[in-house]
């Protein structure tokens, strides 16, 4: 009988490690549980309590605790992030809390993968392909949104003044990684 399958990251080993860099560091983030929560504000409020992180009702804002985060992606859509081993617990808690109320909870742990870019020139690297104004006055810490990087769609979330979390569909992740490495080399 075959062995238990092992998760293989979409970024692969070749792209997951990068040494320190004065302008911007890139690293693949560890596997996580991810859900797309869809529903109206009342359901979102209940779900936030069950999840342990309130869902932002303000557009383009994320809330987080130490190991969980809820990112506003649309007026009825939030991306939930939690540790890899918390998937069943999260699912169970939300199902229990919401009962028969209308909502959708979809597991997307494998659809997306995440990487992080940090450093004094991280915004400049991102702006090689992202058309948004990333000045802290326009894109403050805690802001999150779907947007474009080059020819890929990404979710961009500023977790600290010089740190950005990028969530991206798995098949676009190598492109995003290579694009950022290329952009960093051309500063």
């Amino acid at each position: 009988m075959a062995e238990q399958p092992v998760r293989q990251s979409a970024l692969g080993a070749a792209r997951a490690t990068q040494g320190p860099h004065a302008a911007a560091c890139l690293r693949a983030l560890p596997a996580a549980s991810r859900f797309s929560f869809r529903g109206s504000p009342p359901e979102a409020e209940t779900a936030g309590v069950a999840f342990g992180v309130p869902f932002s009702l303000q557009s383009c804002r994320a809330h987080q605790t130490e190991d969980r985060a809820a990112l506003w992606l649309g007026p009825d859509e939030w991306l939930l992030l939690a540790p890899e081993d918390a998937a069943r617990a999260v699912q169970a808690a939300l199902i229990r809390a919401l009962g028969e109320r209308p909502y959708a909870l979809i597991g997307i742990a494998h659809r997306n993968t995440a990487l992080e870019i940090s450093g004094p020139r991280a915004t400049m690297v991102l702006n090689a392909g992202c058309p948004l104004d990333l000045h802290t006055s326009r894109f403050p810490v805690g802001m999150c949104t779907r947007t474009i990087l080059g020819k890929a769609e990404i979710i961009l979330w500023r977790t600290a003044s010089e740190v950005f979390h990028i969530d991206v569909w798995r098949t676009f992740a190598p492109y995003v990684w290579d694009f950022l490495i290329e952009a960093r080399a051309r500063l």
């Binding site: 075959a2 062995e3 293989q8 990251s9 979409a10 798995r170």
Partner: peptide
């Protein structure tokens, strides 16, 4: 259909079998 990160190993196991 299996979660994508496991796709390679599952394919491999079926091929072997």
């Amino acid at each position: 259909n299996v979660p994508a990160d496991y796709g390679s190993d599952v394919w491999h196991a079926i091929m072997q079998q």
